[in-house]
């Protein structure tokens, strides 16, 4: 178990967790030109864009609370593709190094952080919860705090890829009968500590290597991830992964319905877009905001990813 000391985020809703909640609570559509982009993004490279948005998320978190300067801390960046668009451009040039580490390095420089440990986690769209799980382990191993950063952008590379998979919805997100999702952009920063704080969080992972682009249809892997968490007392709200694809709904809905039959479910992707590796970080922050506003006490978050990745997290007020 870890404790969430503070958090911040940026998305198509704008900068700040309060903006996120305005969109989620009022169900306001903030999509722009076929996607949910960061406002005012024109002209930036992906590296500059994500570094800037991570900086905004980090400063929001630190305005609320940050660990003491003399603490030993780590930083984990969760992302699916990092700065890959800058990295390979449209020329297809190959580079020696991965496209995530330069984003982590740029963020650490920008934020003037010198962590004792730092790395990137790329577990597809469940990257944020994989990073939270690793952060729990780092705290157990002796670090005083861990900063989880999460970021993904909608680039031509990503759009082309999801178009090829035919997973993007033709209809606008709030329309009935949609059969896919719109992509979104987000950056988030979450400070985790081992010192009791406002929220406690536990995350779990399971990967079954099921078909590459879909979760195991039996739901077995998602169930295993969920049942690793202490579900008694039961959560009073579930944030589903809920991309809007047929495959996601066929797998996730029966499992959530079986384990949490009477618990209300919410989802953020129809209002904020599918923000890929950062999506579960947004859900986690939304859960904290709902707990802070006394609209929920224990919130379960479910997150799935390509390659058979399944993850879950339970967050509760302390």
């Amino acid at each position: 178990m870890a404790f969430i000391l503070s958090y911040g985020c940026s998305s198509a809703a704008g900068r700040g967790a309060s903006r996120l909640m305005v969109v989620l609570n009022l169900k306001t559509d903030v999509s722009r030109d076929e996607g949910f982009y960061f406002p005012n993004r024109a002209g930036d490279s992906v590296l500059e864009l994500l570094t800037g948005e991570l900086g905004a998320a980090f400063h929001e978190a630190c305005t609320s609370a940050r660990p003491a300067l003399d603490e030993r801390f780590g930083v984990i960046l969760a992302s699916t593709k990092g700065m890959s668009q800058d990295f390979i451009g449209n020329r297809g040039a190959e580079r020696a190094h991965d496209p995530l580490t330069p984003l982590l390095d740029a963020a650490l420089d920008h934020l003037e952080l010198a962590p004792a440990r730092a790395l990137c986690v790329s577990n597809a769209c469940s990257s944020s919860l994989a990073a939270i799980r690793l952060a729990e382990i780092w705290l157990k191993q002796g670090l005083d705090s861990v900063l989880v950063l999460a970021a993904d952008a909608v680039t031509p590379f990503v759009l082309r890829g999801f178009s090829s998979l035919k997973l993007l919805a033709a209809n606008r997100p709030k329309e009935l009968g949609r059969d896919g999702f719109w992509l979104g952009e987000a950056a988030a920063a979450i400070w985790l500590t081992k010192t009791p704080s406002a929220f406690a969080v536990q995350a779990s992972l399971d990967n079954d290597g099921s078909l590459v682009t879909r979760p195991a249809t039996s739901g077995a892997s998602l169930k295993r991830a969920l049942l690793q968490l202490p579900l008694t007392p039961a959560p009073d709200l579930v944030f589903a992964h809920a991309t809007g694809t047929v495959v996601n709904e066929e797998t996730e809905e029966p499992v959530l319905g079986e384990i949490f039959p009477d618990i209300p479910r919410r989802a953020s992707k129809s209002l904020l877009g599918h923000t890929l590796g950062a999506s579960a970080a947004l859900d986690l922050i939304a859960a904290c905001e709902l707990i802070r506003a006394r609209q929920a006490r224990r919130v379960l978050i479910s997150s799935l990813g390509f390659g058979g990745a399944h993850a879950a997290a339970l967050v509760e007020g302390v």
Binding site: G82, S84, T101, V121, S204, G209, A220, F306
Partner: peptide, 25 residues
């Protein structure tokens, strides 16, 4: 084009499930 996806086929071969972390540095 997701680095973790190469693990899916390996898991099928191993007939294994469990926690997987895909690390880049």
């Amino acid at each position: 084009t997701l680095p973790n996806v190469r693990g899916a086929a390996l898991l099928q071969l191993m007939n294994w499930h469990g926690p997987v972390l895909c690390i880049q540095n």
